[in-house]
Measured scan of single mutants.
Amino acid sequence: MEVRTIKVFTTVDNINLHTQVVDMSMTYGQQFGPTYLDGADVTKIKPHNSHEGKTFYVLPNDDTLRVEAFEYYHTTDPSFLGRYMSALNHTKKWKYPQVNGLTSIKWADNNCYLATALLTLQQIELKFNPPALQDAYYRARAGEAANFCALILAYCNKTVGELGDVRETMSYLFQHANLDSCKRVLNVVCKTCGQQQTTLKGVEAVMYMGTLSYEQFKKGVQIPCTCGKQATKYLVQQESPFVMMSAPPAQYELKHGTFTCASEYTGNYQCGHYKHITSKETLYCIDGALLTKSSEYKGPITDVFYKENSYTTTIK
């Protein structure tokens, strides 16, 4: 009895394709271990004539594949690729409408935090270190965002349907971005203890939790000093293409032309909904596939993004 075979390709990165001759009487799992086709788990399936010449994702289970996976995804987590594939199996079914010149995501599976993050990423200057993220990001900007969303979920250790947080998501993504040249110098002034300067680099240099107003941050924000008295913390120097200011959701007025974009969060910790506000020729609110415009805006804002380049204080 002759062994019926077909020729397929296996890959971990969709760049390096490895030619395989597979036995049609055995499952993919018996031949390769966990195997995925377009995100779908085909591990328990036997090869079919229609699979001839198709590319299958496999887990990096030998040295060659491990090197290829690390170079593309910059992670050695053995569960990463499987999590990416199972997320992709959902995100490829989502709709990605162009809204006001940006790629958004039609609401499904509690994905409003991903839509808000995706919209924000198209408006701030950011370059990702893992080629996987950078490639998928370019495709997302062009309207094909399924891979990018699935990668975000995998890097953030999230599953489809789980509630997510924009600030946490951005923080994970910033860790995989090139923020080497970003720098922030802060000064804390206390009447009792004097003053202390701190220099922050990388992710810490672009994120701040405690106030939404970048102007206020430049002037000074009140913080408790270690001595128990009130101290003032203010920005001395900022070198970065953008800054992200966050605070627990509270009524906040966004003035046209003073910011790049913002995240609105309605609801409580267990259950809520994100919308995205962007400042173009007027203010726009993007909620999944829905767009509304207004000249002014007041609502429960939790993150505001500002364009920056270089700032030095005039406070002496």
Rank of each mutant, 00 (worst) to 15 (best):
A231M: 04
I315Q: 15
H256R: 11
D109W: 01
N111A: 01
M26I: 13
Y214C: 01
T226M: 11
Y137D: 04
T76F: 11
A132S: 08
P300G: 08
P249T: 10
D77S: 08
A205P: 04
Y72H: 13
E71T: 00
A250M: 13
K46S: 12
V189H: 12
Y155T: 01
I124K: 03
K92W: 09
I45Y: 15
N147A: 11
H176I: 03
K183G: 05
A154K: 00
Q30R: 14
L151N: 03
I223K: 04
W94G: 06
C261G: 00
D77W: 03
V188A: 10
S86Y: 07
S213W: 06
T43F: 07
G272V: 01
Y311E: 09
A205L: 04
Q134Y: 03
C149Y: 06
L186M: 14
L283T: 02
E281N: 00
E281L: 02
L118H: 02
I277T: 05
K280L: 15
H18E: 02
A69F: 14
P131I: 01
G143S: 04
C190D: 09
D180V: 05
K7D: 10
G53Q: 11
F305N: 08
L212H: 06
P248E: 06
K275C: 03
T55C: 10
A115S: 09
Y73M: 01
H276Y: 07
H18T: 10
K191E: 12
S25D: 11
K307A: 13
Y297I: 08
T266K: 13
I6L: 12
H51W: 04
L290G: 09
L290S: 15
C190Q: 06
A262H: 01
N14G: 15
L212A: 05
P224D: 14
G39M: 08
H90W: 06
P78T: 10
D303W: 00
L235M: 01
K233Q: 11
S240M: 00
T302D: 01
K7Y: 12
Q196F: 13
A117P: 07
D38E: 14
T260F: 01
P47A: 10
C261Y: 05
Y28L: 12
S50V: 12
R167Q: 09
P130C: 08
K44V: 11
P249H: 05
G299S: 09
F56G: 05
L254Q: 12
K218M: 02
F128R: 08
M26K: 15
S279K: 01
E144L: 05
P60K: 08
S79Q: 14
T232C: 08
V206G: 04
F128D: 03
P248G: 03
G210V: 02
Q270C: 12
D41M: 07
Y234C: 07
N89T: 11
Y274G: 05
D38I: 09
Y214A: 06
S86E: 15
K95V: 15
G194T: 02
D41A: 13
V8R: 05
K92Q: 10
A136D: 02
S50P: 09
L114H: 05
Y269E: 14
L88T: 09
N157L: 00
Y113N: 05
E204K: 12
I124W: 09
C190N: 00
V67K: 13
L126R: 03
Q197P: 07
D109I: 05
I301Q: 01
N178V: 01
K275D: 00
C182L: 04
G272I: 00
L121M: 09
V21N: 14
A136E: 14
V236P: 00
N61K: 13
G228D: 02
G161T: 01
T312Y: 13
L133E: 06
V188E: 07
E215A: 09
G288K: 04
G210F: 13
T266G: 04
V3C: 12
A117F: 06
V67A: 14
L37T: 10
R66N: 14
N14A: 13
F128G: 02
T35Y: 04
R139Q: 14
T278Y: 13
K44Q: 09
L59D: 15
T75V: 11
N111E: 04
T260L: 15
Y138R: 15
H176Y: 14
I6A: 14
K95D: 13
P249S: 03
P97F: 05
L118M: 07
L126T: 00
C193Y: 06
V189G: 07
G267W: 05
Q238N: 02
V243F: 04
P47N: 07
A145S: 04
Y72G: 07
K93Q: 09
S171H: 15
A117C: 12
T192P: 03
A115K: 01
Y113M: 08
Q197D: 05
Y138K: 15
P130H: 03
L126C: 08
Q196I: 11
A154C: 10
T278L: 10
T76C: 14
L291K: 06
E2R: 11
R167V: 00
